[in-house]
Structure formats: structure tokens, C-alpha cells
Design a protein around this nucleic acid. Structure first.
Lengths: 249, 249
DNA sequence: CGGTTCCTTGACGCATATCAATCTGTGTGG
DNA sequence: CCACACAGATTGATATGCGTCAAGGAACCG
């Protein structure tokens, strides 16, 4: 059952990119029309072919977006955590949803009606700008994902994924945590769980140890072999003599 | 050498989604700051790592966007024709370009300065809306491409590609033209030219004949096996008894 | 302690990449 | 007009890497 007055129950001032920089009035307009809903793990939020009535913002939990074929094969698009939004792009596409969304964990979602967003975009430049930033960021991730799957070996894909986790979780630490089940990550990387498992063994020889969900780097530059020009740009090690993106061969 | 006054040399009133519905003033603001440039075939327009200063709109010719690895492997992202834009998403990403763009044919490009776009988006709701529509449309294509490559066989990918061409070129005709070189299409579909060639032979047995760049459908429903729920929605045959998306097995 | 779920490991087969040769169409120069 | 050269496409033979199938192990939970 949807709760009311999300403006009080949701912390909107920090770390929700969608709402950043909005005026009081404009923010109120979004929130006062929104509702919050709890979703149990594994539950379907949007199906392929659904008409999408809301933009969803994750208050708590995590969500996976994907496409699946009639034969049951799945292609993971994104795996998202609190603060991130989904169906943000879909509500501007026209037609029904080309993707599914399911809950990876028990989650709490803020649902902003699509027509409110579409209206407000026309007069609220800041909201439009936020949406453009968010959607293009996802676009970039999608491009890197596609590129990985088409051109890289399973081990290189895994290393690249670890690298991005590493930078996300603080490039100073030598430890990384896997944020999702291995089989979920395997699918995201376009491989079968068995292949993922074998890739873990191979990457161990390159200085990256994995126990359970815990990754330990033998040295600070262990992941550098998997870097590309894009990623190097936002790396604190960029420019140091040890930094040679794509140096892995 | 860039020509001036593109407002006169470019036909902006029709079929350029980016400019649709803009007021005279706002359109003028874009065009008066833009330039037109000719590019010879094979020439690089943007490289990975470049700072992107323009949004490009194809006046004439065709362009390919892609990512490539240091080893020379390429992953095609899109192949575009006149009226379409590129680098539209990139100018909102922040950082340098994660993708390359090269000319597949001799082309003429309208170049709109990125800062002009970024400024105008904040006050011109229609432009923001247009950009959101365009970028999310590309997003959708990217999802379908990813899905194809991950879950489908080469033959199914080919059939799906033919289906989209078919609908693009008029679903009433039984003939389709390949708009690009086969090796280019092969790479877009995530396979080698040899595999592409073999897929062509296999698809011949399913009622789809290919001679040179010319495809002939044996019957109007020959491509239906390759359809998915998304695509079915915009198909004129949708709802007829012969329409069974994903019916191919 | 038994059951479930997830992960790992091994053996095997197949589909696609790879390598190499031939063919086709196109354009060029004699 | 023909001969030649070239790029792209096709075809064949081979290899290899990932998927598949099946079994075993490890952690979690009742």
C-alpha cells in the first residue's frame, strides 16, 4: 500500500542526482505527486511491453533492469542501488517499455508520475538538465558494456568490472566488495556462471584474489592492465609512470 | 573550410528531429552559431578521449560511431544517415568522448557548438524535450543491440536487423536494400564478415534471398519469426493472425 | 543435522573465430 | 575493348574458447 507525503519520508537533499539544484517549488511539484512503494525481493516492477506510468527512484534496496527473450535468456542492462533512478529514459521513448525491471533485494521505491515529469521538463530547465546528465551517464555505461562484451575476453571483462568497482568504492583501498551475487554479475558481463568462476581463477594469477564476495588486490596497480582511456581520465593514478591504460596484452 | 550562414544552406524545416517545434528565435540562435563542414570518406571526426566541442547533425552522407581497443578491435555503436545527430549525448556526459566517429561516406556536417546547446537547454523546454527524445531513442537501439548480441544466434541477429530495415524502408515492399557495406553491418551485429556471409546462406532457406545489396522476401511474413514484443508494437501486421512475435525457435 | 541455494570443478561438444584460398564485381590503364 | 589489379565477399578447413551437462563442495538456514 503506497504511503503518502514522501516529501517527509524521503531524504531528497543529498545524493539524488535527479533532484539536485531544483527550486523548492519545482521539487515540491514532483514530490507532492509521488508515492512510495515497498517491493519484495524478486518481484517484477516493470515488464517488457508495459506502459510505463512512473519514473522510479530507489530509496532503499537494489534493482536490475534487463531484457529477456521468450526462451528465457536474459541480458542484464544495469544493476542499481539507492539514489539511482530507472525508467527515466523509457518515459521519453514513446511506446511501451523495451525493458524489464526486477528487485534484486527488498526495496523501497519513490514513484514519480511520468506525465508530471514530462510536463515539468518543458518549463524546468534544471530538471531537463539533470535528466540529460543522468541518461547520458547510463548511455556511457551501456557503450562500455557493449564494447566489453564484443571485444574483450571474459577475464578482461571481469578485470574491467573490478576496476570500476574499485574506483567507485574508493581507489585508495586495496579491498573491494562484490555488490551482487556472482551469477548476477556474470550475466551482466555476458557470460555463464561457470565461465565467470573460471575467470576468477585466472585473474588470481594476475594479482587479484577473490574470497567469497571479498576481493583483495596484491598491489595498487594490479587492475591497471584492464583500464581504458575513458576510465583512466577519472583515475587518481592517471599520469603517474605506472599508468598505461590498455597496457594489458 | 567551414561555410557560413548554414541557416540558408541547410534544410531545417523537415526531418531534423533536433529542430522540430523550436521557435524561430531559438532555432536562429542555434543556426547562427553553427557551421557546416565537409568530410571525406574514412576521415575521423571525433576520437576517443577528445574533448567534444560540437553536436553534429548530418546534412549529407553517413557516419559511424564506435569504440575501439588498443589492439584494433572495433565495436560499432551506430551507423547514421542524413538528418540524424551524433555526439548529442556525449556533450552532456562530462569528461572526454568515450566514442569515436568516422565518415562512412563523403559527408556534410552541421556543427552546433556544445556550449550553445547546453545553455539553451536550460531555458528552451522544446529543445530539451527534443534531445531527450532523440537520446532515449538511441538508448533503446543500444539496448536492443546489446540484447541481440548476448542472447541471439548470428542468424537471428541478422533477421532482426533485416526486420528493422524492412520497417524503416516501408513495410509494404518486399524488397530491402542494404544501406552499408556487409563488413560494416557484420561488425555492428557483433560478428566477423565470414560469419555474416554464412548467416546469409542460412537465412536464404527461411525465405529471405540476398543478391549483392538487394534483399528479396519470399513472402510478407518471412521476417516475422525474428520479431520481438517491442518491434511488433510498431508493425502494421501487429494483431493479424500471422503475427506471433518471437515465434521463431 | 539435513536441506536448500549458490558456487565450483571436470569432461565434452559445438559454434564461431581464424587462417587461407577462391571468386565476384568494379574500376583503371593500355 | 580487353587485361589487369584491387577491394570486398564467399567458401573451405581447422582450432579454440565458451557453453552445456553433470557431479561435487561450501555456506546458510531452518
Amino acid at each position: 500500500m503506497p504511503e503518502k507525503t514522501p516529501s517527509q519520508s524521503v531524504d531528497t537533499n543529498t545524493s539524488v542526482p535527479l533532484f539536485q539544484g531544483l527550486t523548492e517549488d519545482n521539487l515540491q511539484n514532483l514530490l507532492s505527486n509521488s508515492t512510495v512503494r515497498s517491493i519484495e525481493q524478486g518481484r517484477e516492477i516493470v515488464q517488457q511491453g508495459d506502459e510505463v506510468k512512473y519514473l522510479y527512484c530507489i530509496v532503499e534496496g537494489s534493482i536490475k533492469t534487463l531484457r529477456s527473450s521468450p526462451e528465457g535468456e536474459e541480458a542484464t542492462i544495469r544493476m542499481l542501488k539507492a539514489g539511482e533512478t530507472f525508467m527515466d529514459a523509457v518515459i521519453f521513448m514513446g511506446g511501451t517499455s523495451p525493458i524489464r525491471a526486477t528487485a534484486l533485494k527488498p526495496s523501497k521505491l519513490l514513484m514519480v508520475p511520468a506525465h508530471i515529469i514530462r510536463q515539468q521538463v518543458l518549463r524546468d530547465g534544471q530538471l531537463a538538465n539533470n535528466l540529460l546528465h543522468i541518461i547520458t551517464r547510463h548511455q556511457k555505461d551501456a557503450w562500455q558494456q557493449l564494447d566489453s562484451i564484443v571485444t574483450k575476453t571474459p577475464v578482461a571483462r571481469l578485470g574491467y568490472y573490478f576496476l570500476k568497482l574499485h574506483m567507485e568504492q574508493g581507489a585508495d583501498s586495496m579491498d573491494i566488495e562484490l555488490p551482487f551475487q556472482k551469477s548476477i554479475i556474470a550475466n551482466y558481463l555476458g557470460m555463464k556462471p561457470e565461465t565467470f568462476s573460471r575467470a576468477l581463477k585466472k585473474i588470481k594469477d594476475m594479482g587479484i584474489d577473490v574470497n567469497q564476495d571479498h576481493i583483495t588486490l596484491r598491489d595498487a596497480y594490479a587492475l591497471c592492465h584492464f583500464c581504458d582511456t575513458d576510465t583512466a581520465f577519472s583515475c587518481p593514478k592517471h599520469g603517474t609512470p605506472e599508468c598505461k591504460p590498455g597496457g594489458c596484452s
